[in-house]
Design a protein around this nucleic acid. Structure first.
Lengths: 197, 197
DNA sequence: CGTCGAATTGATGTCATTCAACTACAGTGG
DNA sequence: CCACTGTAGTTGAATGACATCAATTCGACG
């Protein structure tokens, strides 16, 4: 289950082994306990997090105090407040550990080095951005009109592995419905004898 | 009101004048009548559109046949199905002219040339992507819980210039509510003697 | 002037929220 | 080991916000 960032760079990003190792050695690793806050609203977000083990989430607070979950990040995923990092602004989101989590901190310096060392990395980074956009697009499309049930079903389809690791109320928050509603949706699906797995 | 892409490259993207002119001359321009389809679902999206004059929109069709508006693009904006262009896939969105519109077609070749000619362009492109993500994030946050009224007010705030150019039912579609609901929201705001301008 | 789509308005329906009560379970301290 | 507490999840009843359906008005355009 645990994934090292260096092997990620080689296998997924397609960097040559030597370069990947070099880059990897300059990076800082950190561990966080369940419930720990990795990024606080108002603080500048100075790096991306790559999750080697565990599970993170990012969320914003609405005016009425409710949490809106932006993203989950299990192993192999990046999580970051892009606005904050890129525009050097204070973040308007939080990042929190849902489980005990081990991350690699990826700062601007890393990106500069990586870009110099390898044009492959540039392309890969570009691809990540585009994927991110594509995924957000899908989510917007869902939020623009899909029923609670449809949203939940699409969540199951997209992130089946998260179903068992994320508490229900967080899934509800991600879907933009209340925990009570989600509970009812699940009950309804159960009577239709639908099985998630 | 009309904006040429070459001056955009110079002033907004920060390219040197000479390079901008060179790049610009290789580009193709097109005009579309109001109502014209620039990109059809299923067709591969082979280029971005830069709007020099007029107004475009992109939208997807939901399963129930309803349109979900993804984006508006007035002068000075890009519009594209990024998934389709980038992953060389068939598009799952439409692009349509809301007004008579003049666009510049920006294909892969342009990007390659631009990247070779100027590293400034690379950075600029990156910035565009990040802005796009930032803006989608805001929208998701709105859709996750804001009332019809709040959504509308935030739309007014973000795109005041579009208010008068976009038909109401399209704004409703963009906000994820029905035209009827939007009409009532506006009425409600009027009695509270709220003035958009 | 007549037509067609956009916008408004009213009556009614539906889905999700809200509020409250209750169960289940994990963690804490006596 | 058992009570105490807090959080997650479920369930029910009442409410509310938005959707739907239908009728009407408005406005642009041929």
């Amino acid at each position: 289950m645990e994934i090292n960032f260096d092997s990620y760079l080689i296998q997924t990003a397609g960097l040559p082994e030597k370069e990947a190792k070099t880059l990897y050695h300059n990076l800082q690793k950190k561990e966080y306990k369940k419930g720990a806050i990795l990024l606080d609203k108002g603080a500048p977000c100075k790096h991306s997090f790559f999750v080697e083990k565990g599970l993170l989430r990012s969320y914003m607070l609405a005016d009425d105090g409710k949490e809106h979950i932006i993203q989950f990040a299990p192993e192999n995923w990046f999580i970051v407040d892009r606005s904050s990092v890129y525009f050097n602004d204070s973040s308007d989101s939080y990042i929190e550990a849902i489980e005990d989590t081990e991350v690699v901190l990826i700062d601007e310096e890393f990106f500069c080095q990586a870009k110099e060392i390898s044009s492959v990395f540039n392309k890969f980074n570009d691809k990540l951005l585009h994927n991110h956009i594509r995924q957000m697009q899908k989510r917007i499309n869902l939020l623009l009109g899909a029923s609670a049930e449809t949203r939940y079903l699409s969540f199951i389809k997209m992130y089946p592995d998260l179903l068992l690791r994320v508490p229900q109320w967080m899934i509800a928050s991600y879907l933009g419905i209340t925990p009570e509603s989600l509970s009812r949706v699940r009950k309804e699906l159960a009577t239709k004898n639908f099985k998630p797995n």
